[in-house]
Amino acid sequence: MIDWSFLIEVLQKLLAGLPLTLQLTGFSLLIGFILAVIVAAAAASRIRVFRWVANCHVELFRGTPLLVQIFLIYYGLGQIPELRQSFLWPFLREPYWCAVLALALNTSAYTAEIIRGAVQAVPAGEIEAARACGMSGFLLRRRIIWPIALRQGLPVYGSEIILMIKGTSLASIITLNEVTGIAYKLISSTYRIFEVFIVTGALYLLVTALTGLAISLIERRLNVHHAYRRT
């Protein structure tokens, strides 16, 4: 009953789009994380304007659909004449970089919140103890705050990574041929919806499951000193 040769053919075609999916995810996570660190720092700053800008950024990108953000960047930015003349235009003309920019800005807002939450969750006692030992400034951050915050934030960041993998599928709407784009073309050309869907779904599940596994392995490594808690 099952047409295996068709399923394998679909899988082969989809695999051709997997590098683009992973590339979009990787690039936007990297840029998004750097932005998020800046935004989180601004949100914790003493200067009110910085805090305000950071909060607006978070509110704007978490409160609107990713697809709206993609359209705003892809269709909207070209309307600004100054931008069209600038050195950025060769990049922003390409759907690829528009997708990366939208995804990066989107994840930066969520990641900034994750960083903020993780740093806030560092127990005050640990910081007091470190201060009592004479640590302050960068040393306190490097030795105490950041390692503890990393452990607190990693599980949440793991689900953000998975959300980003799923988010790259929207790049297909602005003509990029990543996995979902290829799946859409296969569906509309063969009209064998259920077979294509099952293979595409399985491929995404595999990628997200492997990501989840990798995150939990890192988590376990970071929490080695708590290992006795497990039976």
Binding site: K166, L170, T180, A183, F197, T200, Y204, T208
Partner: peptide, 9 residues
């Protein structure tokens, strides 16, 4: 685990 847009399709 899979993109929402695929489920819409």
């Amino acid at each position: 685990g899979i993109p929402e847009i695929l489920i819409v399709y």
